[in-house]
Protein backbone atom coordinates (compact mmCIF):
# COMPACT_ATOMS: atom_id res chain seq x y z
CA UNK A 1 0.00 0.00 0.00
CA UNK A 2 1.32 3.40 -1.02
CA UNK A 3 1.53 6.15 1.59
CA UNK A 4 3.13 9.39 0.36
CA UNK A 5 4.68 11.66 2.94
CA UNK A 6 5.84 15.26 3.10
CA UNK A 7 7.50 17.14 5.94
CA UNK A 8 5.88 20.46 6.72
CA UNK A 9 7.84 22.44 9.31
CA UNK A 10 8.60 19.37 11.44
CA UNK A 11 5.20 17.75 10.96
CA UNK A 12 5.05 14.56 8.97
CA UNK A 13 2.00 14.52 6.67
CA UNK A 14 1.04 11.04 5.44
CA UNK A 15 -1.50 10.69 2.64
CA UNK A 16 -3.69 7.60 2.48
CA UNK A 17 -5.69 6.62 -0.57
CA UNK A 18 -8.16 4.06 -1.86
CA UNK A 19 -9.73 1.42 0.35
CA UNK A 20 -8.66 0.12 3.74
CA UNK A 21 -10.62 -2.99 4.62
CA UNK A 22 -10.24 -6.36 6.31
CA UNK A 23 -8.16 -7.70 3.43
CA UNK A 24 -5.43 -5.03 3.45
CA UNK A 25 -5.54 -3.56 6.97
CA UNK A 26 -2.34 -5.35 7.95
CA UNK A 27 -0.56 -3.92 4.93
CA UNK A 28 -1.91 -0.46 5.89
CA UNK A 29 -0.59 -0.93 9.42
CA UNK A 30 2.89 -1.96 8.24
CA UNK A 31 3.06 0.95 5.79
CA UNK A 32 2.02 3.46 8.45
CA UNK A 33 4.40 2.05 11.05
CA UNK A 34 7.22 2.38 8.53
CA UNK A 35 6.30 6.00 7.89
CA UNK A 36 5.85 7.18 11.49
CA UNK A 37 9.06 5.74 12.86
CA UNK A 38 10.85 8.84 11.49
CA UNK A 39 8.40 11.27 13.10
CA UNK A 40 9.72 13.29 16.01
CA UNK A 41 7.27 16.15 16.56
CA UNK A 42 3.87 15.52 15.03
CA UNK A 43 2.04 13.40 12.44
CA UNK A 44 -1.01 14.20 10.31
CA UNK A 45 -2.89 11.53 8.40
CA UNK A 46 -4.52 13.17 5.37
CA UNK A 47 -7.59 11.15 4.32
CA UNK A 48 -8.76 13.24 1.40
CA UNK A 49 -8.12 10.41 -1.09
CA UNK A 50 -9.36 7.64 1.20
CA UNK A 51 -12.59 6.29 -0.26
CA UNK A 52 -13.44 3.54 2.24
CA UNK A 53 -12.40 2.37 5.68
CA UNK A 54 -13.96 -0.30 7.90
CA UNK A 55 -13.43 -1.26 11.55
CA UNK A 56 -10.26 -3.16 10.52
CA UNK A 57 -8.76 0.13 9.33
CA UNK A 58 -10.06 2.10 12.32
CA UNK A 59 -8.31 -0.40 14.53
CA UNK A 60 -5.00 0.43 12.81
CA UNK A 61 -5.54 4.16 13.31
CA UNK A 62 -6.21 3.55 17.00
CA UNK A 63 -3.01 1.49 17.29
CA UNK A 64 -1.01 4.24 15.57
CA UNK A 65 -2.57 6.91 17.80
CA UNK A 66 -1.63 4.92 20.89
CA UNK A 67 1.93 4.31 19.68
CA UNK A 68 2.44 8.01 18.92
CA UNK A 69 1.04 9.04 22.28
CA UNK A 70 3.57 6.79 23.99
CA UNK A 71 6.34 8.44 21.93
CA UNK A 72 4.99 11.87 22.88
CA UNK A 73 4.35 12.67 19.20
CA UNK A 74 1.20 14.67 18.41
CA UNK A 75 -1.28 13.09 16.01
CA UNK A 76 -4.18 14.38 13.95
CA UNK A 77 -6.29 13.34 10.95
CA UNK A 78 -7.78 15.63 8.32
CA UNK A 79 -9.98 15.93 5.24
CA UNK A 80 -12.35 13.04 5.98
CA UNK A 81 -15.21 12.39 3.56
CA UNK A 82 -18.71 12.57 5.06
CA UNK A 83 -19.19 8.78 5.55
CA UNK A 84 -15.73 8.43 7.09
CA UNK A 85 -16.39 11.38 9.40
CA UNK A 86 -19.65 9.64 10.37
CA UNK A 87 -17.96 6.40 11.37
CA UNK A 88 -15.31 8.35 13.29
CA UNK A 89 -18.13 9.96 15.27
CA UNK A 90 -20.04 6.70 15.78
CA UNK A 91 -16.84 5.06 17.04
CA UNK A 92 -16.08 7.91 19.42
CA UNK A 93 -12.71 8.37 17.65
CA UNK A 94 -13.33 12.10 17.42
CA UNK A 95 -12.90 12.14 21.23
CA UNK A 96 -9.41 10.62 21.20
CA UNK A 97 -7.98 11.69 17.84
CA UNK A 98 -7.72 15.28 16.68
CA UNK A 99 -9.97 15.61 13.59
CA UNK A 100 -9.60 18.64 11.28
CA UNK A 101 -11.42 19.73 8.15
CA UNK A 102 -8.30 20.58 6.18
CA UNK A 103 -4.56 20.06 6.20
CA UNK A 104 -3.89 23.66 7.26
CA UNK A 105 -6.32 23.37 10.19
CA UNK A 106 -4.65 20.13 11.20
CA UNK A 107 -1.22 21.79 11.05
CA UNK A 108 -2.29 24.58 13.37
CA UNK A 109 -3.85 22.00 15.71
CA UNK A 110 -0.66 19.93 16.09
CA UNK A 111 1.87 22.77 15.82
CA UNK A 112 -0.06 25.40 17.77
Amino acid sequence: MQIDTVNEGGTLIAKTEGRVDGTNAREFQEALEGVIKDADHSVILDMEQLTYISSAGLRVILLIAKALERQDVKFGVCSLSDPIREIFDISGFDKVVNVSGSQSEALSAVQG
Partner: peptide, 12 residues
Protein backbone atom coordinates in the same frame (compact mmCIF):
# COMPACT_ATOMS: atom_id res chain seq x y z
CA UNK B 1 -6.86 6.83 24.32
CA UNK B 2 -4.47 4.70 26.37
CA UNK B 3 -7.35 2.65 27.83
CA UNK B 4 -9.36 2.30 24.62
CA UNK B 5 -9.69 -1.38 23.71
CA UNK B 6 -8.57 -2.35 20.21
CA UNK B 7 -11.43 -3.86 18.24
CA UNK B 8 -15.08 -4.67 18.86
CA UNK B 9 -16.24 -1.81 16.68
CA UNK B 10 -17.57 -3.57 13.60
CA UNK B 11 -20.98 -4.69 14.81
CA UNK B 12 -21.43 -1.40 16.65
Amino acid sequence: LDERPIGGLGVH
